[in-house]
């Protein structure tokens, strides 16, 4: 498919706790938006590459999140599981405009 994603405002950075995460529901599956200590924003599908744990419920540290189910550590920037685990979850394009969060969800 070649459809381009549209940027949609999904909320403000202040809606997400520092070192926390909130979920954006889509018709297919949830997207987890993370906020780091330095107010950077990342978005991943809310599904651990291991056994589909909800990454939005994990502990955020640096630019990574530890999955709540079996402690895999997933990079927020690339969606890659850190050593020794292997796996990958898709990232979703996200950007900040002022304090507003925009997400590029495929229609």
């Amino acid at each position: 498919m070649t459809e381009t994603a549209a940027w949609t405002r999904v909320g403000a950075i202040d809606d997400i706790p520092i070192l926390g995460s909130r979920v954006v529901a889509t018709p297919t599956e949830d997207i987890a938006i993370f906020r780091t200590a330095g107010d950077r924003i990342f978005a991943l599908y809310d599904r651990c590459p291991h056994k589909q744990g909800k990454l939005s419920q994990g502990i955020v540290h640096g630019t990574a999140v530890t999955c709540p189910l079996h402690n895999w550590v997933i990079g927020l920037d690339d969606g890659l599981a850190k050593d020794p685990d292997e796996g990958c979850v898709d990232t979703v394009p996200v950007r900040l405009e002022g304090r507003d969060i925009f997400l590029a969800v495929k229609p």
């Binding site: 949609t8 999904v10 997400i16 706790p17 979920v23 954006v24 529901a25 889509t26 018709p27 997400l103």
Partner: peptide
């Protein structure tokens, strides 16, 4: 309450 609600729903 943010723990129990989605941030947004995108259609």
């Amino acid at each position: 309450s943010h723990e129990f609600r989605s941030l947004a729903t995108v259609e």
